[in-house]
């Protein structure tokens, strides 16, 4: 798992690469939260287009970041999950809590 970041205004895009399970989610969680706080982001885009595996820990990771952003008056969006990743996320109805955006790949 590795993550890279892009900041546009106060919207932070975190692009996650690799596999999300309980082991990697714990690392990603503290890393992303640190970056959110560092840049004082008000919006968070979680780009999951390069996630090759995701289980319920990924669901927890996304929900947790949404909670954190909302607590600070901000918002969070999931961007470009694969069909596979989306299946795991929507099983718990995450799509009713936050937008799942699908963008054209550049």
């Amino acid at each position: 798992m590795h993550i890279d970041y892009k900041l546009r205004g106060t919207t932070l895009t975190a692009s996650l690469h690799g596999e999300i399970d309980h082991h990697t989610a714990a690392i990603a969680r503290s890393e992303i939260d640190m970056e959110i706080d560092r840049v004082k982001a008000t919006g968070l885009n979680l780009d999951l287009s390069d996630i090759s595996f995701c289980d319920s820990s990924g669901l927890g990771l996304v929900m947790g970041r949404l909670k954190k952003m909302k607590a600070g008056g901000g918002s969070a969006v999931v961007v470009n999950p694969s069909e596979r990743v989306e299946k795991v996320l929507t099983l718990a109805g995450i799509d009713t809590l936050m937008p799942i955006k699908k963008e054209e790949r550049k």
């Binding site: 969680r29 319920s56 927890g60 947790g64 099983l91 718990a92």
Partner: peptide
Amino acid sequence: PLYTTDTGGERSGMGFTI
């Protein structure tokens, strides 16, 4: 679905459902 005994972490209680 959504049942979890985990309070401190970020579990969502979806493991068995998955």
